[in-house]
Amino acid sequence: MVANGTLLSDIGVSLLRIALAFLASTMMAVAIGVLAGTYGIWRAVIEPLVDFVRYMPVVAFVPLTILWVGTDEFQKLLVIWIGTFFQQVLMIMDAARRVPQDYIGLGRTLGMSNLAIVRRIVLPGALPDIWDATRICLGWAWTWLVLAELVAANSGMGYRIVVSQRYFQTDTIIGYILVLGLLGLLTDQIMRLVERRLFRYRQGA
């Protein structure tokens, strides 16, 4: 399958899907999570809703996403987004809440606006924990990617597993599962490497 290009094609499709969906999920989660973690009024509005949705099984949303948006590419991205967004919001919100209040109080004493406090104090202070939360959620994104491709897909690694199941090609199924595990491990190690480079000052702690 490597020789005829099937495996590399499936990997490319799956990587593109997970990159687009997870990037959108992370950008939205950072904006909402930092806002909710910094200001109590936003936390009171956002946290109950996010807590409510995140306990719903993502599998149950798959048929609903097909009914809502059809079976095109956006449906696959939506499943990954649902599986990662709400978890990320809570984890990023907790990261923002761990920024010492003394820093925020100092910003107010210096006359900084709310936006400046978020941009120059809260976000840099919470960034290491936000990165760690993102790395953890990226692992979940691989799980939801396979789920999205198992249903109503015509390409990708999950799709290839379903096709192999129909023809009892157990070797192909096991091979693709191993490749998925290796890809997940590779992305996790890349995130760890970038984390060590970006936040060297935390290595001593």
Rank of each mutant, 00 (worst) to 15 (best):
Y201C: 01
R200G: 00
R97K: 06
T170K: 01
L180R: 08
E47H: 14
D51L: 04
T71G: 04
Y176F: 13
L78V: 02
V2L: 14
L185Q: 07
Y55A: 13
F168I: 03
T187D: 09
V58E: 05
R17Y: 01
R196P: 12
I190K: 11
K76F: 03
M91F: 15
F199H: 11
D10G: 06
A148K: 03
A24M: 10
V62T: 12
I66Y: 07
G175N: 13
G139M: 04
L8A: 15
S9F: 10
L15H: 05
V151P: 10
F85N: 01
Q87G: 05
R43D: 01
M91Q: 15
W68G: 08
A152L: 12
A44N: 11
R98S: 03
T143F: 09
S14C: 06
Q203N: 08
I80S: 01
G107E: 15
F52N: 15
L123S: 04
V2K: 13
V50F: 14
A133Q: 06
L183V: 04
I32S: 06
W144Y: 13
G158Y: 04
L90K: 04
D94T: 01
I18G: 08
G156H: 11
Q101I: 04
R119W: 14
D72Q: 03
T38H: 09
Y103W: 09
L185R: 11
S25A: 15
P48W: 15
L115C: 11
R108S: 10
G111K: 09
L23C: 07
A152T: 13
M28C: 08
Q169F: 07
D188T: 12
L145S: 02
R120P: 02
V118L: 07
M191G: 06
V79P: 05
L115N: 13
M91Y: 15
L150D: 10
V163F: 06
R196C: 11
Y201W: 15
W81K: 02
Y167A: 11
Y159F: 15
A152E: 12
N4H: 11
I32M: 08
N114G: 10
R98N: 00
M91D: 14
T84Y: 02
W131A: 15
A126I: 07
Q189E: 12
D171S: 07
P57R: 13
A24R: 06
D102P: 00
L20K: 04
T71P: 04
V118K: 05
Q101S: 01
Y176K: 11
I136Q: 07
V13H: 11
V151G: 11
C137R: 10
G184N: 13
I82K: 12
M27Q: 09
A31H: 00
F52M: 15
G184A: 14
L138D: 00
S9V: 02
L35R: 08
V89A: 07
R197G: 01
I104S: 07
L185T: 03
A24Q: 06
L35P: 10
A29S: 12
L67R: 10
I92N: 14
R202M: 06
G125V: 04
M157I: 06
V79L: 07
Q88L: 14
V2E: 09
S14P: 04
F74D: 05
